[in-house]
Simulated scan of single mutants.
Amino acid sequence: MAEAATIDLRVGHRDRVRQRLMTVGGEAFTDAEMLEAVLHLAIPRRDTKDLAKLLLRRFGSFAAVLAAPAAQLAAFDGFGDSSVANLKIVVAAAQRYARGQVASDAPILSSWAPLLDYCRTTMAFEEIEQFRILFLDKKNRLIADEVQQRGTVDHTPVYPREVIKRSLEHGATALILVHNHPSGDPSPSTADVQMTRQIIDVAKPLGITVHDHIIIGRAGHASMKALRLI
């Protein structure tokens, strides 16, 4: 009987969380409350309030918890293979949604905030550097979004001629370059700036414009154009 009462209380609490979400929206939730609600989906048969607090203390933020490696999540009581997989499905859905906000018929330059949200969702908590290219048409609409290179924790090899070759294959007339800094600090390095200028120099004679190079870190982002580095 005690176990049945506990289950009833848990179900009742989850119903109240869902009702509150539908009434006031997710913006009214704290990170702990939102993570608890997400964990309801990932771990359907246990109380997740205390677990949400533990995870936030360990990883530091809601986004960092969702991006945490599966092996680190599995170290917490209640996280089995199924629960970790369920959580990663939530993450994949969020990334797909964010990409959908960018991949529309609207010029990408007029959707800058969704673009940054998408880049942060997909790259901010990666443990190795990756170099992503957004290929645009003459109306600055997204043609393709590709990760061209993956590197180490602090370096990604980028070859300007390969970037241009892929641009020509897509018929792109403009590019937005994006890469992440796993250290968390999005400040451009000297090597980042030099590499970007090399790509611009190769692209310009072919009529391909590099609109920006965005660097994503856990602490935010940096735009080389806004910093007047390109």
Rank of each mutant, 00 (worst) to 15 (best):
M1G: 05
M1Q: 06
E3T: 11
A4H: 15
T6V: 10
T6I: 07
T6L: 11
I7E: 07
D8N: 12
R10S: 12
G12V: 07
R16D: 09
R16Q: 11
Q19E: 12
R20M: 10
M22P: 07
G25C: 10
F29Y: 06
T30Q: 03
D31R: 05
A32T: 11
E33L: 13
M34S: 08
L35K: 02
E36W: 03
A37H: 09
V38N: 03
V38Q: 01
V38A: 02
L39Q: 07
L39C: 05
H40L: 06
L41M: 10
A42K: 10
P44F: 06
R45C: 08
R46L: 13
K53C: 07
L55S: 13
R57A: 11
R58D: 14
F59A: 14
F59I: 10
G60R: 08
F62V: 10
V65K: 05
A67N: 01
P69D: 13
A70Q: 07
L73N: 06
L73I: 06
A74I: 05
A74N: 04
A75M: 04
A75Q: 08
F76A: 07
F76H: 03
G80S: 04
S82V: 11
N86E: 12
N86C: 08
N86P: 08
N86A: 14
K88E: 04
I89D: 09
A92K: 15
A93S: 14
Y97N: 09
G100M: 03
Q101E: 06
Q101W: 01
V102R: 00
S104K: 10
A106E: 05
S110P: 09
S111W: 01
A113P: 02
A113M: 13
L115G: 06
L116Y: 02
R120L: 06
T121A: 13
T121L: 14
M123V: 07
M123P: 02
E126Q: 08
I128H: 05
Q130I: 01
R132H: 03
I133S: 02
I133Y: 00
I133R: 00
D137T: 08
K138T: 14
L142S: 00
I143K: 12
A144N: 02
V147F: 01
Q148K: 04
Q148A: 06
G151W: 00
G151Y: 00
V153L: 14
H155N: 01
T156Q: 02
T156C: 01
P157D: 08
V158I: 11
V163G: 05
I164K: 09
S167C: 10
G171C: 15
A174Y: 03
A174E: 10
L175E: 06
I176Q: 08
I176R: 03
H181C: 13
P182D: 09
P186A: 02
S187M: 12
S187I: 14
P188H: 05
S189I: 03
D192F: 00
D192R: 00
V193T: 15
V193A: 13
Q194A: 14
Q194N: 15
Q194C: 13
R197L: 13
R197H: 14
I200E: 07
A203E: 09
L206H: 11
I208M: 12
I208E: 12
V210G: 05
D212M: 02
H213K: 10
H213A: 15
I215V: 04
I215T: 13
I216F: 14
R218W: 05
G220Y: 06
G220I: 13
G220R: 09
H221E: 10
H221R: 11
A222M: 02
S223T: 11
M224G: 08
M224R: 06
